[in-house]
Computed example of a mutant assay.
Amino acid sequence: MMENSSTPPASEGAATPAPGSGTKRRLIYAAGILAVLALVLDQFTKRIVETSMSEGQVIDVFPPLLRWYYIKNSGAAFSMGEGYTWIFSIIQAAVLIYVAVFLVRKIRVWPWSLALGGLMGGVAGNLTDRLFRPPSFGQGHVVDFIALPNFAIFNIADMFIVCSMIGICLLLFTGRELDGSKPADKKEPGHDAGAEPRELQ
């Protein structure tokens, strides 16, 4: 006697989604969204500074801890490398492309998603200044305005870059790779020093 079943048999050729594929997409989307948010916030705050302050102006916010100090930086951090803006433009473009094309698609855990997303957004923020601000394309000066005592003057993009690099360093220091695994987790089964031999069936 044949049993009736309301569930149709699964076809042998039916495609089965890869395990974790949905999570991978969410992590990639999250990295992209964070990058866009960082870029927008960075450019928005720079626009406010440009329209409400004159270059060189200082405004006390929480003295003596925090001040707005509007300057334009043609170099890297601490104004190093002034006169070589085009080199920083190339380096930042290369970093952004490498992270976006080669690294983001490999992430499988949230810490790496947030770290790489923040890094992309920060780099994109300063790269936008270098590409589209005066004096010329690729040699634009970066707008900096956040001043702390005995420290460099920086911007929102710099904050994202620094925080992301700290996170990346911690992930690398703890041995966490882009997929969340550690090198020790990838040892081939049966090759552990303390593993007991399996019985032959």
Results as ranks from 00 to 15, higher is better:
104 V>N: 08
83 G>Y: 03
79 S>H: 09
64 P>N: 12
47 R>W: 14
88 F>Q: 01
73 N>W: 05
60 D>Y: 00
100 A>F: 06
40 V>M: 06
79 S>P: 11
55 E>R: 11
40 V>S: 03
53 M>Q: 05
52 S>K: 14
47 R>D: 09
77 A>Y: 00
55 E>W: 00
84 Y>F: 14
77 A>I: 05
100 A>C: 10
58 V>A: 10
55 E>M: 06
80 M>W: 02
82 E>G: 12
68 W>D: 02
55 E>F: 02
85 T>P: 07
66 L>T: 07
90 I>W: 03
76 A>I: 03
98 Y>T: 15
93 A>R: 03
45 T>Y: 01
72 K>A: 08
93 A>D: 04
74 S>R: 05
73 N>V: 11
106 K>C: 07
55 E>D: 03
60 D>G: 10
86 W>H: 09
63 P>L: 07
52 S>H: 13
76 A>S: 14
41 L>D: 00
53 M>F: 11
108 R>P: 03
71 I>W: 04
64 P>M: 10
60 D>T: 08
84 Y>I: 13
72 K>N: 11
42 D>S: 12
102 F>Y: 14
58 V>C: 02
104 V>A: 08
101 V>E: 00
89 S>Q: 08
85 T>W: 01
52 S>D: 05
92 Q>H: 06
50 E>M: 13
42 D>H: 10
78 F>A: 13
53 M>G: 02
90 I>G: 11
75 G>D: 02
102 F>V: 10
64 P>L: 08
103 L>G: 09
49 V>E: 02
71 I>G: 05
86 W>T: 13
63 P>T: 07
59 I>S: 06
42 D>A: 14
69 Y>T: 10
43 Q>D: 06
104 V>F: 04
44 F>Y: 14
83 G>F: 01
43 Q>L: 13
65 L>H: 08
96 L>G: 03
108 R>D: 03
53 M>Y: 09
44 F>D: 03
85 T>D: 01
104 V>H: 05
76 A>W: 03
64 P>C: 11
54 S>L: 06
81 G>A: 13
106 K>V: 08
103 L>V: 11
107 I>M: 10
81 G>T: 04
98 Y>V: 14
85 T>E: 01
74 S>F: 01
98 Y>A: 15
96 L>H: 04
92 Q>A: 15
97 I>T: 14
53 M>L: 13
51 T>I: 07
65 L>M: 12
56 G>Y: 01
97 I>E: 00
68 W>T: 06
71 I>L: 15
44 F>L: 15
81 G>C: 06
89 S>H: 11
51 T>R: 12
43 Q>W: 02
91 I>W: 01
52 S>P: 00
60 D>L: 04
70 Y>P: 01
98 Y>G: 12
50 E>T: 10
108 R>L: 07
63 P>Q: 03
49 V>P: 02
51 T>P: 01
88 F>I: 02
75 G>C: 09
103 L>K: 05
54 S>V: 13
104 V>M: 09
72 K>P: 01
101 V>A: 12
54 S>I: 09
59 I>T: 09
61 V>M: 05
64 P>A: 11
70 Y>R: 09
60 D>P: 08
73 N>I: 12
40 V>D: 00
